[in-house]
Simulated assay, not measured.
Amino acid sequence: MTTHHTGTREAWLAARLDLLAAEKALTRHSDELAQQRQALPWVRVDKAYRFDTDEGSASLADLFKGRSQLLVYHFMFGPDYKAGCPSCSAIADGFNGFAVHLAHHDVTLAAVSRAPLAKLQAYKRRMGWTFPWASAPGNAASPDITSSVAADFNADFSVWFTDEQQRSGTVDYNYRREPPLKSSASQDDESAGAVATFAAMCGTDVPTYIRDRPGLSAFVLEDGIVYHTYSAYSRGLDGLWGMFQWLDRAPRGRNEIGVWWHRHDEYDRR
């Protein structure tokens, strides 16, 4: 017998109407937050970032693909990973469907990672994805661009940190400072945690895994100038997880105990 409280249809309807009022209030507040996002000041991007893409070397402006708006998902896939982050992969599973609609509304959706392009292309084929995915590697794409500038994109948008930053406690992620990573941290030390599980699923150790982070950055191209308009990280990406939006409406909600999700082609292997 169910342990959840039950009631009549009339009781359910009364409770549902109360919830509806709360849902409408949340929707209105969400609309207000969207307006606040769009009202943020634009910051001109002057660095000559370079990316490796399916079409060759590209600038940040090239990633717009002729549109005026660009949404970049910072996908956790470092050069030492054997496969992309499972959480980022779950989010990216929805990109193919969304990208075509966004493209017809003057918005390009793309992913950017530090892994070499060949690695990204192989993983993209494995996952069956078609959205644009660029590599922002740590080497210069052309002689007139220094290695540091080529590598700066991930660091400048707070989705990649060095070993020294981890050890010294100077990692600023999601707009706050993180404590130093313990020098003794290892996969064995963290084996019970989700981070260690994800690191293992990517074929790497915890420190290497968390040097790359997830995020979303928005850009606009106006009069030939690129501006940065918005970035979000960590739980700020929750709305991009299509599966969680469905689970929030399921009878038992997210109902999470540990790491339950996998890459979509791995469920049948378990």
Rank of each mutant, 00 (worst) to 15 (best):
S30F: 10
H74V: 07
A200M: 01
A11T: 12
S147Y: 07
L71A: 14
T2Y: 05
V259L: 11
A103E: 11
R37V: 15
H264S: 13
L20M: 11
L17S: 12
L60S: 09
G236K: 03
L40T: 08
R269W: 09
D156E: 05
S142P: 00
S113K: 10
R9N: 03
F198H: 14
R37A: 09
T3Q: 08
I91Y: 01
P41V: 01
A90I: 14
S184E: 14
W241A: 11
N96E: 04
A196M: 05
S148T: 12
K182I: 00
A83E: 11
L240T: 02
G242Q: 10
P116V: 07
L26Q: 13
T108V: 10
A150I: 06
I257N: 03
N139D: 12
S148L: 08
N174T: 02
V259P: 08
D268E: 13
A39V: 05
R263N: 07
E222C: 06
S183A: 15
P116D: 03
K119G: 00
Q165I: 08
S186P: 08
P214T: 05
D265Y: 12
G242L: 11
C85G: 10
L63Q: 04
S113W: 05
R254G: 08
V195K: 00
V171L: 00
A115Q: 04
L40Q: 15
R37S: 04
Y267A: 12
V220S: 10
G97Q: 13
G66E: 00
Q121Y: 04
S147H: 13
M76R: 15
N255W: 07
V45F: 02
T146P: 09
R211A: 02
Y227I: 09
L237E: 01
E55G: 08
L20K: 13
L120K: 07
E164D: 11
W129F: 09
K24S: 09
C85E: 06
A151K: 07
A136L: 06
C202A: 12
W133V: 00
A34M: 13
D156L: 03
P137K: 00
L26A: 14
T204W: 01
V226T: 09
H105M: 09
H74D: 03
G258H: 06
K47E: 04
E23K: 13
T8A: 04
Q38V: 05
P132Y: 00
H5I: 15
A151S: 13
S89V: 14
S68V: 08
G97A: 15
D46G: 14
D46Q: 12
K82V: 12
A110G: 09
Y173I: 02
F51N: 05
A199I: 07
E178T: 00
S234T: 06
S135E: 01
Q121V: 14
D188A: 15
Y230C: 05
S30H: 10
T170H: 01
G253R: 02
L40Y: 06
N96F: 04
L63I: 06
Q166D: 04
H101L: 12
E178L: 15
T208G: 03
N154F: 03
P79E: 10
L40M: 11
N96C: 02
K124W: 04
G224L: 01
F75Y: 13
A21L: 07
A185E: 05
D172E: 10
I257P: 00
H5P: 15
W42H: 14
I145F: 02
T162C: 01
W42N: 13
A11R: 05
F95L: 02
A155M: 07
F153V: 10
D80A: 15
F244Q: 01
R16L: 10
K47D: 05
G7T: 11
L102H: 04
